[in-house]
Design a binder for these strands. Structure first.
Length: 185
DNA sequence: CTTGGGATGGTCT
DNA sequence: GACCATCCCAAGG
């Protein structure tokens, strides 16, 4: 497997969000592998982005957004869900992360269905909390290094690049003029 | 197909 | 004490 190097993540968060499309997210649990192709992402930056968790200050929850790029930022939301992000930013910026909103399942579909207790393939991993549930990603993976072989990592993925659709980010009230949601079909 | 409300608890002000 | 980078189901058209 070829992992995306640390340098991949040490660029503008918006650039990384776009380029993560088509890459492969790999998760191993109990010796079994699940994987999927990233099909939707969102960029969240720092002081210039009021919608970002890092906008106000560094806290216990968001601290990894300020730390080494290429690590997992995972947060708990709505009382029952986890969302998975990758820390990424230009070295000149102090914080940033890319929310992974959707993947197209490849390996381990049966395990994902079991984890979700839902069996409809279309709704298995097409949302940030859905894919976390399918891949059994929780706060335990907070800060995991995604650039090397481990239980959670990102590899090169597809050779061919597809057309990227840019939109406003989902579920936020500020920064709507930034088209920082990216997807491929 | 779209819309609205409930579930449920950590995090930040 | 209000707010959520969400999801699911039921009801309506």
């Amino acid at each position: 497997m070829s992992f995306l190097p640390r340098s991949f993540y040490a660029r503008n968060t918006v650039t990384v969000a776009k380029e993560l499309l088509g890459k492969r997210l790999v998760r191993k649990v109990n010796g079994k592998t699940m994987s999927g192709i990233i099909t939707e992402t969102e960029a969240y930056r720092h002081k210039d982005d009021p919608a970002s968790h890092a906008f106000r200050s560094k806290t216990e929850r968001n601290k990894v957004m300020f730390e080494q790029v290429g690590r997992a930022y995972i947060y708990f939301t709505y009382g029952m869900y986890f969302c998975f992000n990758v820390v990424a930013r230009n070295p000149k910026s102090k914080a940033g992360a890319v929310l992974i909103r959707s993947i197209q399942p490849e390996l381990g579909v049966d395990i994902m269905k079991k984890n979700r207790r839902k069996y409809d393939l279309k709704n298995l991993t097409n949302g940030p909390a859905k894919l976390s549930q399918a891949l059994d990603i929780t706060k335990k993976q907070y800060g995991v290094d995604l650039t090397r072989d481990s239980n959670l990592c990102i590899t090169k993925g597809l050779e061919k690049t597809r057309k990227i659709i840019a939109s406003p980010r989902v579920g936020i009230k500020s920064g709507l003029d930034n088209l920082w949601n990216f997807k491929i079909t």
